[in-house]
């Protein structure tokens, strides 16, 4: 099975207005910058997609990657745990102006909601957020004498994920702590689009080391020298990047 496509633009061509898009990464580690930038390019050329709901741990940093997607005006709502960063000005200004919606979710709950979405579990109970503002309106139940908050699964139309190696079947490995939300988001999206630093032949990844099995991946594109958000921000880069 060959799920590879030629370039990021082709990979993101099917993302429509109003979709929910999970974007991997914790800060810059694991951020699929080239896929995000390809999506921005399409929006600049065609006016689409727009009105997106984005799921990410953060709300972008500086003026590249997720921050640039938000800055372009393509995001209606953000579901995240920590919308602050070294330079959160893009999200902060829009949020304080009432121009972008925020659903704040504790980080572990966000991860488990995504996992549940991918695993076909519509709801689960967690001790996290019990008795806090973030549990308002959610059912509470006691188990073994302790209170737990019901949380619901989170699913997406599309996931954009950065991997280290991929084979044409979509079997993936990740690099270091860039793994973070990647394996979960791959499971939870109807259409998972992966940018991998290296696409290798089927059989070249030892099955023992596959982290995400290919069944969770629909599209693979090789981006052999990916940008790193932290490096771009330290150079004060803004999208579109200068050549």
């Amino acid at each position: 099975m060959d799920k590879t496509v030629a370039d990021p633009a082709t990979a993101v061509a099917g993302i429509d207005d109003g979709m929910t898009v999970m974007i991997g990464g914790f800060g810059g580690a694991g951020s699929p910058i080239e896929l995000i930038h390809a999506l921005i390019d399409r929006y600049r050329a065609t006016g689409h997609p727009t009105g997106l709901t984005v799921v990410n741990n953060n709300a972008g940093n500086g003026h590249v990657g997720l921050a640039a997607l938000i800055e372009a005006g393509m995001v209606r709502k953000l579901i995240c745990s920590f919308p602050r960063s070294a330079d959160p000005v893009v999200f902060t200004d829009l949020y304080l102006a009432g121009k972008i919606e925020l659903e704040l979710v504790p980080q572990g709950t966000l991860a488990e909601r995504i996992r549940a979405g991918g695993a076909g579990i519509p709801a689960f109970y967690t001790p996290t957020s019990y008795g806090t503002d973030l549990a308002e309106g959610k059912p509470v139940a006691e188990f073994e004498g302790r209170p737990y908050v019901q949380e619901r699964w989170l699913k997406a139309d599309v996931a954009l994920v950065k991997a280290e190696q991929a084979d044409p079947h979509g079997n993936l490995t990740y690099r270091a702590a860039a793994r973070n939300f990647g394996p979960l988001m791959c499971m939870a999206a109807a259409n998972t689009i992966v940018q991998a630093r290296q696409v290798v032949a089927a059989g070249a990844i030892d099955p023992e080391t596959v982290v995400t099995p290919g069944i969770f991946v629909q599209t693979v594109v090789e981006v052999s020298d990916p940008h790193q958000e932290e490096v771009l921000n330290r150079a004060d880069a803004a999208y579109p990047l200068e050549a």
Binding site: S81, P83, T92, L96, P106, T109, T132
Partner: peptide, 11 residues
């Protein structure tokens, strides 16, 4: 006030 952010604190 400002932008709320919780991260992993509640977990």
């Amino acid at each position: 006030k400002g932008v709320p952010a919780v991260g992993g604190a509640m977990d």
